[in-house]
Design a protein around this nucleic acid. Structure first.
Lengths: 228, 228
DNA sequence: AAGTGGTCTAGACCACGTC
DNA sequence: ACGTGGTCTAGACCACTTG
């Protein structure tokens, strides 16, 4: 035996049997011990294979009940959200940054659902790719949770990069929508007013304390892609 | 010692040390053997903790070079893509379905990048939530790869659900954009023409053979959310 | 050449949840 | 009660990559 059975082999074999309907959707599969014996490898190897397939949504596992082929596989798309700078430079373009405004203000009402109190720092800025508007950033940073932000002028370093370097966060909530460009948005992004805008909104917490909320607008042509 | 050190404990400890700057971004961490000794657990336990943090984008690992705290953590949002039916019913609304058209046709030119040959089945249909248009589906199924589709009329069962049950797929590519509603789109979705539309496009393969391409349009108010 | 992560093994104990 | 997955251990060998 030149090659041992690795967990990748086990995953491939399981997927093969699902595809050829040896194990149709909903079917009960053999337990780890039996499958390990059949494929002549250790149970830990089968465990890792099955665990990863379960994480991926292909299998459903329950103690004592056993492992089944997922009946309605909830497909998961994993979106990578890199730094804007890295994203732009990754496309071979030159990245640049412009601060639009920066001022402390009371908590805007739309942030109240997030349980924010005290003052926030409101920042608007623009990220450009080869001099063309790429992403408009409208951000609010809690001065209660991140008082150090008050000392930053953000003329050179974008709030995005500053936050990542300074404030380690533990929880994030993201949502995506399509919206019509407001007049100011359209002007900054160099698009006709009312044109479709791809919007990502992100709220961030550290240890349960609200840190920042950001609204990122891209011209509609922006494409977010993933594969699996 | 009542409690053993589990891989969750190790992950938590690592994250703690990143947060309190014991290991700042870019820093070289101890190797698995040393960390295992310090935390008094097996190397495999540390390995699993570090491996999962690396998958998550928190750490960068390279053989021989060691493990470092990711300098620019590529944040990953995992989007769950459930069946439309499940999504609608999960919101407590009544799901319904309408077939708009269904006809075989030659491969449209925009599918040529995907290497599609032969005939495809073109299907348009509408998914409704409590009777209101929720998602417009414009789909093309390869009759070469999935000839069984020709026998389906799709008047009751949506192509989505039929495909999931019948054709196990192995590779998927998804992308999201914001677009302006075309006139027909606007009419079906009951939105003003030109209004922002949230579009998901998905191409699917099984064993390297192209199966289907689908364009899913939601009214702009649609919100796709995730957290981590 | 040598150090680091990547993986496998064989065995063990435990927690959960179904029967 | 008991079967199944969940996890840990201790040891081993290997592959990759850097110095």
């Amino acid at each position: 035996m030149v090659e041992r059975t690795g967990f990748r082999d086990v995953k491939a074999e399981i997927l093969r049997r699902i595809r050829d309907k040896t194990w149709p959707p909903g079917a009960l599969m053999p337990n780890e011990t039996d499958l390990a014996a059949e494929l002549s490898c250790a149970r830990a190897t089968v465990n890792r294979a099955m665990r990863e397939l379960a994480e991926q949504g292909v299998l459903d596992r329950k103690r004592k009940a056993g492992t089944r082929v997922a009946a309605a596989p909830v497909r998961r798309a994993e979106l990578k959200i890199p730094l804007i700078r890295a994203e732009v430079e990754g496309e071979g373009a030159a990245y640049s940054y412009e601060l639009i405004h920066r001022k402390p203000c009371p908590v805007p009402e739309f942030l109240s659902p997030y349980g924010v109190t005290g003052e926030v720092l409101s920042i608007a800025c623009l990220h450009l790719s080869d001099g063309q508007p790429y992403q408009l950033e409208d951000r609010y940073i809690s001065l209660t949770s991140a008082p150090a932000a008050a000392a930053q002028d953000f003329t050179v370093l974008s709030p995005n990069e500053w936050l990542i370097a300074e404030i380690p966060f533990t929880a994030v909530e993201v949502s995506f929508t399509a919206q019509a460009a407001s007049d100011t948005e359209a002007a900054h992004l160099n698009q006709p007013p009312g044109s479709p805008i791809f919007v990502a909104e992100r709220a961030t917490w550290a240890d349960g304390r609200f840190i920042t909320f950001v609204r990122l607008s891209h011209p509609g042509a922006y494409r977010m892609t993933t594969s699996y």
